[in-house]
Design a protein around this nucleic acid. Sequence first.
DNA 1: ACGCTTAACTTGACCGATTCCAGAAAAGCC
DNA 2: GGCTTTTCTGGAATCGGTCAAGTTAAGCGT
Lengths: 162, 162
Amino acid sequence: MPTSLEIERTLRAAELRVTRPRIAVLNAVHRHPHADTNSIIESVRLGLGEVSHQTVYDVLEALTNAGLLRRIQPSRSTARYEARVADNHHHIVCRLCGAVADVDCAVGDAPCLTPSEDRGYTIDEAEVIYWGLCPDCAGRRHHHQHHHQQHHAHRSRKDPSV
Amino acid sequence: MPTSLEIERTLRAAELRVTRPRIAVLNAVHRHPHADTNSIIESVRLGLGEVSHQTVYDVLEALTNAGLLRRIQPSRSTARYEARVADNHHHIVCRLCGAVADVDCAVGDAPCLTPSEDRGYTIDEAEVIYWGLCPDCAGRRHHHQHHHQQHHAHRSRKDPSV
DNA sequence: ACGCTTAACTTGACCGATTCCAGAAAAGCC
DNA sequence: GGCTTTTCTGGAATCGGTCAAGTTAAGCGT
């Protein structure tokens, strides 16, 4: 967990002005990796009082463009952000509750960057999403075999920032 | 391009009732791989006259659950569907215009299915999205070096079903 | 410190994709 | 052919995200 001073340095290093909302957003994402925009807005307001959602959207956009944050958006989920950047890791997403976990690259450094055939595209990133069940949901499903489980509960009561 | 008869058989094989909207949706997706929901609605209406968007949403959902369609949704894009299923291929998405192309799996059959560490998750699918520039946009960017290109034109005037 | 310039922030309306709901219609099965 | 179940219709509501115009404040030169 970086200190405010480190966060301030990071912003300056990226040639971004140092503002309270930016610091708060960076802090929030550090504290809750994979949080969705709404959770981030709530965290920021906890610390700063009222801040417009527009500001948070703008800040997330600016920080993402500057490479300080990474945006991920698995199918049927809203946008999520994380502060681990530039280390080529991937994500596992639970089909039932939407929980997200980090995994390091399957085969080493950046090998997934080479598809069998690039169709003439200039590729700069390979993003991998593993789909499956998180330990909790796998367990739950096993026990309630006969209760039909909901298949699209991506917005469950569970904290999205798992 | 499958015939109506083949499509009907496919539906029955999946234990789905054979309805005109379903046939029309399957046809549309076969004709326009990676089409977004809106294009699919338009295609369907071209063939059948007025059909409610709700019906198309329901049909897409049913066909996807039955495994006849696959849904993809790259970050900042709306849902897209394709009829190539169960052959473990991946996608290249253009950061500028959003065009999508297919690529076969980088390393063989289903090897990307094994992450370095599964965090206790039960994984059933690995989805890979390569990000970059399509040949068109790469060329355009190169020529207009000094014109600022739009960075988020994911809904351009370009046919999304490329 | 002072003022200028430019980028960031606020407010509030707006939009498009998706979902919800209740009733009408049609498919599959006896 | 009639019954049951699923699908389809139409319309409203929701929700994540964006736009636009004006205000505020950071960073920078003097």
